[in-house]
Design a protein around this nucleic acid. Sequence first.
DNA 1: GCTTGATCGTTCGAATTCTAAGCAAGTAAG
DNA 2: CTTACTTGCTTAGAATTCGAACGATCAAGC
Lengths: 168, 168
Amino acid sequence: MSDPSPGLNAEQLGAYFALMEVSSLLQYAVDEHLRADGDLSYVQFQILARLVDSPEGRLRMTDLADGVVYSRSGLTYQAGLLEKRGLITRAPSPDDERSVMVTVTDAGRALIAHVLPGHVERVRQLLFEPMRGRDLVTLGGVLGRVREHMRATPPRSAKPRAGRNRAE
Amino acid sequence: MSDPSPGLNAEQLGAYFALMEVSSLLQYAVDEHLRADGDLSYVQFQILARLVDSPEGRLRMTDLADGVVYSRSGLTYQAGLLEKRGLITRAPSPDDERSVMVTVTDAGRALIAHVLPGHVERVRQLLFEPMRGRDLVTLGGVLGRVREHMRATPPRSAKPRAGRNRAE
DNA sequence: GCTTGATCGTTCGAATTCTAAGCAAGTAAG
DNA sequence: CTTACTTGCTTAGAATTCGAACGATCAAGC
C-alpha cells in the first residue's frame, strides 16, 4: 500500500489511542489512591518520588521540572505546597546562586514509603495484570526507546537546556 | 527503588515510568501543534475527533466524557467553547429529554481535516519512528488488552452505565 | 572592570480543571 | 398519580496549570 500521504494506518492509530487512553485511566486511578492514602496529587507524588530516587535526595528545580514533564511555574507552585507541609526544603545552591536545590525531608521520605506499596499495587493490578509472556519486556523496551527518541528530539515541547543535548 | 519488595520489579517500574513519561511528552508535543495549527487544545481535538469518528457525527455528553476520560463539568465547559466557535452544536435528545446530543458541524469536520495531517505526522515522527519490526503489533495488542482490563475494572474514573449498585 | 546574552526561579494574570451542589427528566414501586 | 431513587447535565467556587514578564545570576567577550 503505497499511499502518497504518509499518515498512520489503522493499527498505528489504535496503538496511539490506546496509549493515551491507558495513561489517562492509569493516572486517574493512582491519583485517587494517592489522595486518599497520603493526600498527594499525582504530580506531588512524582516530585517526591524523583527526589527520593536521586543520589542525595535533592535536585535543582529545573531538572525536577524536566524530569516530571512539568512547567517551571507549576513546579514553583507545587514546591510551595510541599514545603509548607514539611515534605521538602528549598535552598539556593552554593555553586549556582540562581538555582534552587530541592531536598526531600525525612517526613517526605516517610510519606512516600507509606503510599508506595498501595501505589505500586494499583499499577500492578491495572497495568501489568493483563500482560502475558514477553509483553512486559517488549513494552518496556519499546517505550524506553521512544522516550529516548522524544527526549533527543525536542520539537519545542520541553526545552531541557540549549547547550548540552548530545552529551548524555 | 532498590527495594526488592513484593511490588514491581525494576523492569516493571521502568515500563510504568516510560509509559507515563512518553504519554506526557507526546501530549505536550501534539498539543503545541494543535494550538498553532488550529487553535485547538488536545482535549478539544479529542472531542472533535471522536465525534467525527462516530456513526452520525454525534454523541451524548456522557459517552463523550467517558470516551475522552474527562469530567462531566470539564466537558460542559469545553463544549461551550466549541459551540461558541461553531464547531459543534448541542441539542436535547428526542428520546431522553435530559441528555444532550453533541454534533460536529461542517466547520468542525473541516478543522479536524485541516489539522489531522500535521497531527498524525507528529505522532508518527515521535512515537512510531523509533519502532522496529513487530514492536507496533505487540504494543497495540498489549495496550488494547490493558485498556479493556481497565475499562472493565472501574476504580472510579468512569462509570460506563452498567448495573453496579452499591449504596453506601 | 563592564557590557551582552543566556539561564534560573518566581510572580502575575488568564485559562482550565475538578468536586460538590443543584436542577430537570427518567424509572420503579406503591 | 405520587414518592423515592437514579441518571444527565449544568452551575458555582476553589484549586491547579500555563505562558509571559520580571529580577537576579552566570558566562563570554572586550
